[in-house]
């Protein structure tokens, strides 16, 4: 069989570090929602949540070790979804 044997062995410590970072980011989110003004928690959510999702995609789902074009395709998909939602605001903000 001529299939590719292109496997990345990621050390456990990488996963542990990413997991700890995710916990810290979650802690930040919880803190901003309870400690400060509620508007801040929305901004924290908008900034921190994509960061967390990115960490999961890149390390736990191995996107970091894929070819650039596959990475591009994932972000193209997310970009289109963001664009759809963004255009909706031309209506919703001014109605």
């Amino acid at each position: 069989m001529g299939h590719e044997t292109h496997v990345h062995i990621v050390p456990y410590r990488v996963f542990v570090r990413v997991w700890l970072l995710l916990l810290v980011l979650t802690g930040i989110l919880v803190a901003t929602s309870t400690l400060w003004h509620e508007a801040l928690s929305v901004w924290a959510m908008l900034i921190v949540t994509p960061l967390k999702a990115g960490l999961v995609l890149f390390y736990f789902m191995h996107l970091n070790y894929e070819k650039p074009y596959l990475r591009a395709l994932v972000f193209l998909t997310l970009g289109v979804l963001t664009l759809f939602i963004g255009i909706l605001f031309f209506d919703i903000l001014d109605r």
Binding site: V80, I87, F90, L93, R95
Partner: peptide, 22 residues
């Protein structure tokens, strides 16, 4: 073609700005 959907809704009561954009 994925960004023009609002042209089905010009008379629906959508905002004027959205009408222009679409």
């Amino acid at each position: 073609g994925s960004l023009v959907w609002g042209h089905h809704m010009f008379t629906s009561g959508m905002s004027e700005k959205a009408n222009l954009v679409f």
